[in-house]
Structure formats: C-alpha cells, structure tokens
Design a binder for these strands. Structure first.
Lengths: 345, 345
DNA sequence: AAATCTTTTGACAACGCTGTCAATTGAGTT
DNA sequence: AACTCAATTGACAGCGTTGTCAAAAGATTT
C-alpha cells in the first residue's frame, strides 16, 4: 500500500527533497555518504518517483510510444510483426526504466494525424518509434515532426527523411536469396510482388532483379506476378505461374503469406516441394516453420531494429545528437525445406 | 507546435481555468453559452489537457495497463493472443480518451511482482487488465490487489478470486465441439491435452469429457495424450495416436498449435483429412485459416473480453461498483474443412 | 588565518491540472 | 422590492517532482 513520496524519503534520510531528487536522477556532486543514506531510505520506504510529477516538472516523460499500422484494419491480424517490435522496444525500455505506450494508427482514417497530435500533447512522450509502412508516409512523419517529438523511423529501405532511421538491407538480402536459388540450379525463377504501397515491396523486387543480373540470368516479365501481400493473392499467383507452358522451377514471393498461398496452389496440383518446385518467402512468420514443407524465407530483425530505435531515443540527451543518420540491421536468410536443387539438376 | 495550456484557453474564452476544467471534464452546471464559448476556444487553440498534470491533480490517470505473460519467453511468440487482447483494450480506450500501456510479465522471474509494484507506483494506472494465465496466479493477483489498483481478470474458467472477472465458457464449448464430432458419426474421438499450468487447459479437457458423457460415449485413457501446447508435442501426439492398432477417427486438441502438429503427422502418413481423420483445435489462430485443410476450431472472444474488462475499469466511478462478479463472453465454434463425417459413416 | 574556489546542499518557484469552498448570479417566492 | 435557494463561476491550495539560484560546507591557496 506504499505511496511514499520524495518528502518521506527526505525526512527519513535527513536531507532536503532536492538531494533525494539528485540521488534518484544519478546526478553528480552528491557526497558518497549522503548518497548512501538516501539510498537506504529509498529502499526502506520502497520509494518510486511518481512519473506524472516528473513529467510535469521536467522535460523527460520516461514514456516511449510505438506507433504502427493498425492491424485490426486487416482481416487477419499480422500480429507477429507488431509483437516483435513491441518486444524490441520493451527490451530497451526495461533496461532504462521507461514505459511503453502503444498507438496503432490507421492511416486510412482522415483523423489519424489528429489522434497522433492528441497523443503527443497529452502524454508528451520522450520519443516515438514509427514503424513501416507509416514511417514512409510523409503525412504521418510530418505530423510527428511538427510537434517536435523526437522520432526514429523503422524502415525497410535506405531512404532517409531527415530523421534517424533504422533500416534493413531488404534489397541486398533479396538479391542474396535469388543468387541462392540460382546456385541450386534454378534457371526459371518467378517472383510474386506485393502491394506497391509498401516501400519495402519495391526494394525486394529490385533485389530479385539484382540477383538475376548478378547471376547472369535474364529478367522476364512473364515470370513476375502481381500480388497484394495476401495468402489468397499468393495462391492465385501460384496457380497462374504453374499453369504456364514452361512453368518456373522456383517461386520467390515478396512475403510469407503469399509463399504459403503458392505452396497451397502447388499442393493442390500435386506438385512436390522442393522436388519439383522451390518456394521462398520473406518475413519468417510463425507459419513458415509450421507448414509442411517448412518455408525458406528471410527474417527481418524487427525486434532488434525496434530496440536500436528505442535505445537511441532513450539515450539521446535531448539535443538530437543520437538521432542522426541511418543504422542498418541486416536481415537473415532462413534456409528450410521448401527450397532444393532444381529438378533434373 | 501547439502547447496551449488551460490558462490560454481560459484567457481566450474569458473565464477562469476552473470553468475550462469543467467543460473538459463534462461536468454538470455550466451554462450552455459559456460551455460553447469555452469549446470554441479549445478547438481554436487545439488545446489538449496534459495527462501528467491531470494525473497529478486528480485520482484518475487516464491510463490502462495490460499485463500479460511475456511471450518472448517462448520460442515462437504466440502473438495473436496478445494482439487481440490489445485490440480489445484499445477499442475501449479509444472510446474514452484513455491510453494503453503494455507490461509483459514473466512470472518465472523472481522480481516479477517487484516490477509490477514499480509500474503501479510510477504510473498509477486507473486500472489493470490481467490476462491468463497470470490472472490465475495468486502471487500476481495479490501483488496488484495489495496496491489497491482496480483490476479485471481475464480468465478461461468460472473461478473468481474476488475481483471482477471476465470469463469464457471453455468447458461448455469444448463439450459442444465434442458433441459436434459425435454428430458426424465419430465414435473414437481422441484428445490431446495441453500444459497443465494453464487453468484453461483443464477446463477444456473437462469439456471434452462432458461432451462424451452427454453423447453416451465412454471415456478412454487410451485416447488421451499429454501435450504441452507446442506444435511439436501435437505432432508427436498425433504420431502416437495414429500408430495405435485401432486409431481414432477424430482428434480434438487443447489448442491450434497442437492441432496443426496433428495435421502434419497425418499428412506425413498420407492420411486424408477430413476423409479418414477429423481434426479440431482451440484458439482460432491465424494459421487455422491458412493451412490446408483449414482447421475447425474454437474462437475465444479475446478481444471482446479485453474490451469488456477495460470498459469496466474506465467506467467505474472509483468505488468498484462496476467491478464486481463475473461476466461471461461465450466462445464460438468455427467449423471449417478439417472435420467431416466419420469414415464409413 | 584569511581569501578564494569548488563541491555539496537546500529554499522555493514552477509544471498544468483538479478539488474545495466561497462568491456571484439568476430564478422563483413572498 | 426584498428574500430564498439553486445554479454557475472563480480563487486558491495542493498533487510530487525538477530547475534555478543562493547558501553552506570543504578544500586549496596565499
């Protein structure tokens, strides 16, 4: 039932509240002996500084906000994505006695920016971690920047809007995946693109093309199908590709959901994976390990990216000195069962 | 760049700050005309009350905390579960201008309760939504209750620890699923149990037994396999059941992950689902709709439960009058492709 | 021992709001 | 018109911190 305040601690330790404040905030110039005395009083009373009072009196709120595309706007919540980012931010918060407030943001909504403004005005967070695809929407970025709240963008591309941005090497790693498929003997490697709204999607497609070029293979429009990131569009794309006269021996998709769709399409046609067809995705969603065959894919280091972002916000002294440039956290190839040597190779 | 304060609004509207406060808090006894004037000033200045100041001055913090078992403690984050609860709480928060703070709690950790206490002391939330399985751990419940913070427990069972509890009818709905399988002609219906730590798991098992009894079918230990909620344990359980001399024609598992494992085991043996084997799970994770055949399962109304919980906390006037008893939100059977008539029926 | 400088400490005013309680206003009565 | 009572409004003191600035205490130099 404790609700010890700084006054209680000061009284018990026989010092002024200001000195207690100094100890709590790890300030310089407190005699070792008094610091000890205060520390003892703090733990005896189980004192914890009230966040609201701190926030009100100082410029730091000890609050980080994670803003991400509202998953409830989709039929199937792509929860894994969000959870992993949350975990990353929470790791950084936990290490620094910060708390995390979450704010799904539906950018399709007219009042999305109003809500962001309201949030910022009301809670005055020390920083905002802005997830993709919002991090690539000028309207959203501007809404936050206008308020002057420190922000870190999580982005799959290299582009930088002036704020500190944590990125992955989507393009490079997709080229790597493509080269890997080539190294298995595949010559006809198809690609299913995703929803062009996501910047990442283009980077991945570029990476696919880079990989072909680097391997000396020709790029062919016939082997590219437009999907929209959904399982269903992957299934449709797979159907379309596999019904060609000269079907591809490998299909690389811009995300795992679509890869799962491709696998289902192949399943229904009795096509063996990876014997007759190799399939690779992107994301490493939980499903990737659970389907049969398990899916070769690319894992975005979402949780590390979010952690790096939150750390930067927390450790910034307030002048933005830690919030400059770009930090690259590399993605990783996850080779599993769905890819294998090209048939007859 | 707005940072209008209540003083600015008061000045512009030509009233005292107290009157502005009254308007903001929708108090009675403000003349219509002054209310209008204040409202106009508020929207002109884009004023939003500072949350910390409110929190400090009043007993309400406009903050809800969602506490759940730390999913990062597992290998495969069971994110869907958490996301859905978050969505429910957020719905209630959005409707009432509340913010959501999330707090994963690793109960295996010695200092889990300390962290909870720290959180409560620091942010003084208006309420805590406590998710299962934490909601059934006396140590955790007590840690929160000791601080006097209003709390609502989300629980799969009927038990009630003295706090307001939002529950599902796990047991009843599992009996219903069992009866449904019987109605399809199945006589040998196996069951894969989950990790006994979760109270829900026992309720589900009881429901399975209830269903058998209600259908006049005998219960047999031979048809029960112990799993641990993981995909792998489901696969192992499936293998074991399907290698019996007289294998079951239907397998009901305590969660979807294990059901997916069973399906994989059947796949590998070339057993057709639902032709030769019906499989039913519990949870309705995203995977359930994505695998082939799609999974018949039971959907917990997690998001509604969380919403009901948060609403109760938000609407409680502070005397706990809204925080009594138990509220049941029924779960729902999701009949899909993985169940069908018993072979030869 | 006095003078100077540095380190350590404390008094007190914010921070932006709500609660309390008293003052003012307006309506209804006599 | 004076009086009563309810509705409306405002003054002011907190809420628990931190920032500012000055005072006190030590350390160093002369």
């Amino acid at each position: 039932m404790s609700k010890a305040t700084i006054d209680d601690v000061a009284r018990l330790a026989g010092v002024s509240i200001k000195t207690v404040s100094r100890v709590v905030n790890r300030e310089q110039n407190v005699r070792e002996s008094t610091r000890d005395r205060v520390q003892r009083a703090i733990s005896e009373l189980n004192y914890r500084p009230n966040l609201s009072a701190r926030n009100l009196a100082s410029l730091r709120s000890h609050l980080i906000v994670l803003v991400y595309d509202d998953p409830s706007a989709y039929e199937i919540p792509s929860g894994g994505y969000v959870i992993r980012m949350q975990q990353g931010v929470l790791r950084a918060c936990g290490a620094a006695d910060y708390e995390l407030l979450i704010h799904p943001c539906n950018y399709r909504n007219r009042n999305a920016t109003d809500k962001l403004h309201a949030l910022i005005d009301q809670v005055r967070p020390d920083g905002i971690v802005l997830a993709a695809p919002l991090s690539n929407m000028p309207r959203i970025v501007k809404a936050i920047a206008d308020k002057g709240t420190p922000m870190v963008r999580l982005s799959p591309g290299k582009e930088n809007g002036g704020q500190f941005t944590v990125v992955t090497n989507d393009r490079e790693v997709c080229a790597e995946m493509t080269r890997y498929l080539v190294s298995l003997g595949h010559k006809r490697i198809a690609y299913v693109t995703g929803h062009p709204r996501h910047k990442a999607i283009n980077n991945r497609f570029q990476g696919y093309k880079d990989g072909l070029k680097q391997s000396g293979l020709p790029f062919s429009e016939d082997l590219v199908i437009a999907g929209d990131n959904s399982f269903n569009s992957g299934e449709a794309g797979g159907d379309s590709l596999l019904s060609q006269e000269n079907p591809p021996t490998a299909i690389f998709t811009a995300n795992d959901d679509m890869a799962a769709g491709v696998i289902r399409a192949a399943d229904r046609r009795g096509i063996d994976i990876p014997g007759q067809l190799s399939v690779a995705g992107f994301d490493d969603i939980a499903l990737a390990r659970q389907i049969y065959p398990s899916l070769t894919t690319i894992r975005q280091p979402l949780s590390q990216m979010a952690e790096v972002a939150a750390e930067a916000l927390i450790s910034d002294p307030g002048d933005g000195s830690k919030l400059k440039g770009t930090s690259v956290v590399p993605a990783q190839l996850m080779i599993r069962e769905s890819t294998g040597p090209a048939p007859g190779d």
